[in-house]
Simulated scan of single mutants.
Amino acid sequence: MSNLGQIKPYSEGDDVDCFLERIEQYFKANDVAATKQVSTLLMLIDEKSYKTLKSMFHPSLPKDKSYADLEGALRLRFRPRVSYYRKRAVFDKAIKNEVESVSKWYERVREMAAECEFGTDFEQRVKDKFVTGFRSGQIFERLCEEPISKAIADLLDIALNKESALLERPENVYVNKVKAVEKRVAEADVLLCVHCGKPNHSFAKCKYKTYKCKSCGKIGHLALVCKSKPTHTLEVQEEEDESGLVDIFTVEESVLNINYVAPYMVECCMGLKKLNMELDTGAAVSCIPEETYKNIFSDFQLQPANCELKTYNGQIVKPLGRRKIYKIRFAQCFQSVNL
Rank of each mutant, 00 (worst) to 15 (best):
L245A: 10
R125Q: 01
A284I: 08
E235R: 10
G220A: 02
L4C: 12
C116L: 04
L61K: 14
K207R: 11
Q6A: 15
C216H: 06
N259Q: 02
Q315T: 14
Q335P: 04
C18L: 09
S149V: 14
K310G: 08
A68P: 00
L256N: 07
A305N: 01
D241Q: 14
E12Q: 01
C226Y: 00
K127N: 03
C216D: 14
K214C: 15
D17G: 01
A68E: 06
F300Y: 04
S164K: 10
F19Y: 00
L279C: 15
L41C: 04
V38H: 00
G321T: 06
F134K: 10
N295S: 10
K183Q: 13
E12N: 01
E12D: 02
K63Y: 10
S136V: 11
K209H: 03
D241G: 13
A188R: 14
V82S: 00
N30D: 09
V194W: 10
V126E: 01
L320W: 08
N172L: 11
E163Y: 11
M43Q: 15
I316S: 12
R135D: 11
E98F: 13
C193W: 03
C213G: 04
K218A: 08
E235V: 15
C226M: 00
R108Q: 13
N172S: 07
V185L: 11
C287M: 14
V131Y: 03
K96F: 01
M56Q: 06
T40M: 06
T231I: 07
S215N: 10
L167A: 08
S2M: 13
K96W: 03
A305D: 02
D189V: 00
E111H: 05
K227Y: 14
T35A: 08
T120E: 06
V255G: 12
A151M: 13
E187C: 15
I45W: 03
R75A: 00
E238D: 03
S243F: 05
Q138Y: 08
M265W: 00
D154W: 05
H221C: 01
N313D: 13
L279R: 13
E71S: 03
S39F: 10
E235A: 06
Y67M: 11
R135Q: 07
V285R: 14
S298K: 14
Y84G: 06
K127T: 02
E71D: 06
S66R: 05
G321R: 02
E267L: 08
E111K: 02
D15G: 13
V266N: 09
A73G: 13
E291I: 06
L76F: 13
S2I: 09
E47I: 07
D15K: 02
I23A: 10
A29Y: 13
G119L: 15
V185E: 05
D154P: 06
